[in-house]
Simulated scan of single mutants.
Amino acid sequence: MSPQVGDIIHIQPTRQNKYGNDVPARFDTVLVNTGTGGATGVLGYRVAQVRVVFKLPEDALPGLFPNARVARPQHLAYVEWFKPFPTAPHHDHGLYKIARSLRRGARLASIIPVENIARSCHLFPDFGAAVPREWTSSNVLEHCSTFYVNSFADRNTYKLIY
């Protein structure tokens, strides 16, 4: 039996280290099962950037989820969405190209159950002809407008996306 490998995402606002230096924020991207996702393929999945994970107080649950027969989520995540996967990957390299979902210029966001997060997801920026000098690993998700989903990040991602 092979050991289980953990899949971890980071959600950290900007903070200062013990020397008083700023440590940039980090909000990882994930693949979310939108309700119809299967064991393989992108159908029923969507990329999102997780901004916050939280738990509601127990006394608030009956008011927010009045149907006691429906499972109440234990933990929730505030996510900012990327557009749905295109119908096919790029013909040259087999990667899916995505962009943020916007409505009137603002990022489309939702609160979802953490259980809907299938796994972490790595995105390559679509650099174009040259990489802008102001882009860093800490801010590229904020500045770049289009990305490629890295299906080669690990074997589990590869299996899911293909």
Score class of each variant (00 low, 15 high):
A88T: 14
R133L: 11
R51P: 01
G44S: 12
R72I: 12
H90R: 14
L61A: 11
R119P: 10
P73K: 03
C121N: 05
A99F: 01
P57V: 15
V79Q: 04
I98K: 02
A88N: 11
H143P: 05
H90S: 08
Y45P: 05
D92S: 13
V79S: 01
A129C: 07
H93T: 06
G105L: 10
H90G: 01
H91G: 04
H91C: 03
H122S: 11
R69T: 12
R107T: 06
A77G: 15
N67S: 14
V53S: 12
P132L: 02
K83Q: 15
A48L: 07
G105D: 10
T40S: 15
I98T: 03
R100N: 06
Y96K: 03
P73E: 04
L95C: 07
P132D: 04
K83T: 13
F82M: 10
L108I: 06
V140H: 04
P62F: 03
P132H: 02
P113L: 12
T136N: 00
A130T: 10
L64K: 12
H122T: 09
T87Q: 08
H93F: 13
A129W: 05
A129P: 00
P89R: 03
N67C: 09
H122Q: 10
Q74Y: 05
L76N: 09
Y78Q: 13
F85R: 08
V47A: 06
G63R: 11
V53H: 10
P125T: 00
L61V: 09
